[in-house]
Design a protein around this nucleic acid. Structure first.
Lengths: 249, 249
DNA sequence: TCATCTATTGACCATTTGGTCAGAAGGTGG
DNA sequence: CCACCTTCTGACCAAATGGTCAATAGATGA
């Protein structure tokens, strides 16, 4: 299984280049940005730092606002206000609203696909599935906005993400399905459909981010709490492992 | 368990009244609309029919457009074009874009909550859960747009649906959790968290509507096919029943 | 038929919003 | 210190859009 082409480092580089194309930056800046110059200068700030800091600040704020209001519902002014920068400055760093949105998408897709390759054929599904569920729920808890933007994007036909889904994600998906199939072949689990099992894992774990509002209302909370996520992990792990006939030794 | 107040008939009436308040209609029309006058007159169309037909036409089209583009992304013009009516006419029937959206929401919430009360304490979870999963997946297949609008609404904090979630849905949810708890008490299934089991059922079945684009790409299809939904039912039913320790006799 | 109510619609408007631009301010390297 | 980048920003603008309105056409019921 050639997974070399999908090493984190390699993927990061690809995503970085992709992102650069959505940002408005000079060639010099595009180059210097790859240097890891994270100095928090106090007096005279370096141009390199200014660009880095502001870009990241804008991306952070944009993720928040996009997740709350969706692409169309988000105004550049809203992002500008939240980032405490003038609107024109946002458009100086990112050529357009669409460019900013795509940059946010590319950033978060990285996190979204991150844990799938942790499942390998040599692991026992007991640990592999458990770890995957834990990772996904943790991500729902710690990066709910990323999950929500992703969900909204897919919900509306993935106009900006189609390519990514058809390429990298699909390949990773098929690799992971292969892993599951190998577990089945080894009689480590029942012969279930790997594809639909993945759908079930994704949806049930992501719902703790995407539908948090609904869940917390139904559980009579202001927001989901640590214990709720743990119960989610517990329930999903139990049902999936036992339901797939994975020995719980 | 007093479920009388939640009979379909009663709930329909409540939803009908709620919907009337979002529409622009005269008192006379509001009354006459309750009469079931579905005549497809050929010569001189009755006012009652005109209003009914146009309202329903607009709601149907609006559901489609809202699901594709979201609330903010939808323009009244787009709905007007799709419904082949002038924009001003849409606003004659529904006072505002928000009013139309709420009317669509109220309509679809009905379908969304519909099947939960089919699970009762006297049934065995084997049949009850299986039927519920079948119903939910069928709904994902036959009314994907309703599901997507609902998902997008919750995703963005349920600004228009909060009340409905806190009221009717929550009560129904708690009733259903009670049913599951009674199954556990009878040793018909393992002691799992009813709340989180419901979350799992909802998310895994709804994903066949909400994430259809993603699923179909990953399955190398243009769109999900009959067989895919069936495999989904099969996988979810199997995993949930076995995973909850429900005897499959 | 006629007075009255309802339905239809083109023209219009105020606001919002994504995006541009010129010029000022600040950093860089020699 | 200077010539040259890069960054910053207020002022603008054109297009899109939700919503209004007055006038016309059609339906109703006595």
């Amino acid at each position: 299984m050639c997974s070399g082409c999908y090493s984190i480092a390699h993927r990061n580089q690809a995503l970085h280049n992709l992102r650069a194309q959505y940002q408005g930056m000079t060639k010099a800046a595009a180059v210097s940005k790859t240097k890891k110059t994270t100095g928090t200068a106090s007096g005279r700030r370096k141009l390199v730092d200014i660009r880095k800091d502001n870009s990241e600040q804008i991306l952070r704020v944009a993720e928040q606002v996009f997740s709350e209001r969706g692409f169309k519902g988000t105004t550049i002014s809203a992002i500008a206000d939240a980032a405490e920068l003038p609107k024109a400055n946002i458009l100086y760093y990112f050529k357009s609203k669409e460019g900013l949105y795509k940059a946010v998408l590319v950033d978060l897709l990285q996190g979204w696909m991150h844990h799938m390759d942790d499942m390998t054929a040599d692991q026992h599904p007991r640990e592999a599935l458990r770890n995957y569920i834990v990772s996904k729920i943790r991500q729902s808890k710690e990066h709910p906005n990323a999950s929500r933007i992703f969900a909204a994007e897919v919900l509306h036909g993935a106009p900006f993400l189609r390519e990514q889904l058809e390429g990298p994600l699909k390949e990773q998906f098929e690799r992971t399905c292969g892993v599951i199939r190998s577990w089945v072949a080894k009689r480590w689990m029942d012969p279930v459909s790997p594809e639909h099992l993945m759908f079930m894992l994704w949806s049930s774990t992501q719902s703790y981010a995407d539908f948090e509002v609904q869940s917390s209302i139904l559980l009579s909370r202001d927001a989901l709490e640590e214990a709720d996520y743990n119960e989610g992990v517990e329930l999903i792990t139990r049902v999936v492992l036992k339901g797939c006939g994975v020995s719980l030794v």
